[in-house]
């Protein structure tokens, strides 16, 4: 079946056909062939990796051989798990095509670089060299990741706290809105990174100016969405709470803020994205530590394997934080229709 017909099949909306399409798709993705695909891809990759001669210098420890072996073992375990019933088994069946895709991508990367040398060095090192760089420079990378995390955590916490406070104030109080909104409209849209020249002279050290920049980047979306969430709380909730004897504090913190939470979380997500961007810019421009700084330092020496290693760690690190925030939101908004998962 070509991709086009497959798409047509899955997108068929007419009743009956849609059901059949979904059933076929399910069957297609969980068939025994798919269950063994990751293991097959890993075995193929390992065979090619061992059989073909290297056309580029490889890392001393040959870590990619180990990774391929580990992936082969993992894929076999996954295939075995997929044969069991229950949730872990279903998860393994659902994820095995994806796992196969990931393994194949790594194998293709290995072939294009180390084995065929179709991509030029030093800009495109193979997975072997990147893994080697990661291992060899593990202390500096761990320290950089720690510094990045510390700066990000301080900046994000400061920005989110300030944003929540300002957002509630502007959303609730008319006079705060009168004075606050114009200020927000003037300051907010400027990217926080534009303040780098200012931040470097305004604060006693690079760490504090980094915190300030990230905080500013987070503060704007959090303030904006918190205030609109609080201002848009249905009047009926507030009326009912008033007739139940609620005072101002109760109205703000027990009615308006919980009702505004979906909007607040939107602000927190946007803030996190802005925080990542600002973190890396701040680290490459002023702060002399962290993953962004490491990236620029290694690029200066044309050590691209290290650059990719840092990028890979950054990706894990950022997507992990995003996932954490998603989990927090799902917990806090369990009452929302459609978000419910027990």
């Amino acid at each position: 079946m070509t991709l086009a017909t497959q798409l047509a099949e899955t997108k068929a909306i007419s009743p009956g056909r849609a059901d059949r399409g979904a059933a076929e798709r399910r069957r297609g993705l969980s068939s025994p062939a798919w269950a063994l695909a990751p293991a097959g891809a890993a075995a193929l990759g390992l065979a090619l990796h061992l059989a073909l001669p290297d056309r580029q210098p490889s890392a001393a420890l040959r870590p990619f051989t180990g990774l391929l072996a580990a992936m082969l073992a993992g894929s076999l375990a996954m295939a075995a798990l997929g044969r069991t019933s229950g949730r872990p088994g279903a998860w393994a069946r659902h994820r095995s095509p994806l796992a196969a895709g990931i393994v194949l991508t790594l194998v293709a990367w290995d072939l294009l670089t180390l084995k065929l040398a179709w991509l030029p060095l030093p800009y495109f090192p193979g997975p072997d060299r990147v893994l080697g760089a990661m291992w060899e420079d593990r202390e500096a990378l761990a320290l950089s990741a720690y510094h990045s995390l510390r700066l990000l955590a301080c900046g994000y916490a400061a920005g989110a706290a300030a944003g929540l406070a300002c957002g509630v104030l502007i959303g609730w109080s008319k006079s705060a809105r009168y004075w606050g909104m114009p200020l927000l409209k003037v300051i907010g849209p400027i990217p926080a990174t534009a303040y780098v020249p200012l931040a470097m002279v305004m604060f006693p050290n690079a760490f504090i100016s980094g915190v300030a920049l990230i905080g500013l980047a987070v503060w704007f979306p959090v303030t904006m969405l918190t205030s609109s969430g609080v201002a848009d709380v249905p009047a009926a909730y507030l009326d009912v709470a008033r007739t139940l004897g609620a005072g101002r504090a109760h109205l703000i913190f027990r009615v308006a803020v919980p009702a505004a939470l979906p909007s607040v979380f939107l602000g927190l997500f946007m803030g996190l994205g802005a925080a990542f961007l600002t973190l890396i810019v701040a680290e490459t421009l002023g702060v002399s530590s962290g993953l962004g700084w490491y990236l620029k330092w290694k690029q200066g020496y044309l050590e691209y394997a290290h650059v990719y290693a840092a990028l890979a760690i950054m990706s894990l690190f950022f997507s992990g934080l995003m996932t954490l925030l998603f989990k927090a939101r799902d917990r806090a908004l369990v009452w929302q229709k459609g978000v419910i998962r027990w």
Binding site: A236, V240, P258
Partner: peptide
């Protein structure tokens, strides 16, 4: 009210 206006988060 006609709309029960229960707090949806509670």
């Amino acid at each position: 009210f006609q709309d029960p206006s229960l707090f949806p988060w509670k």
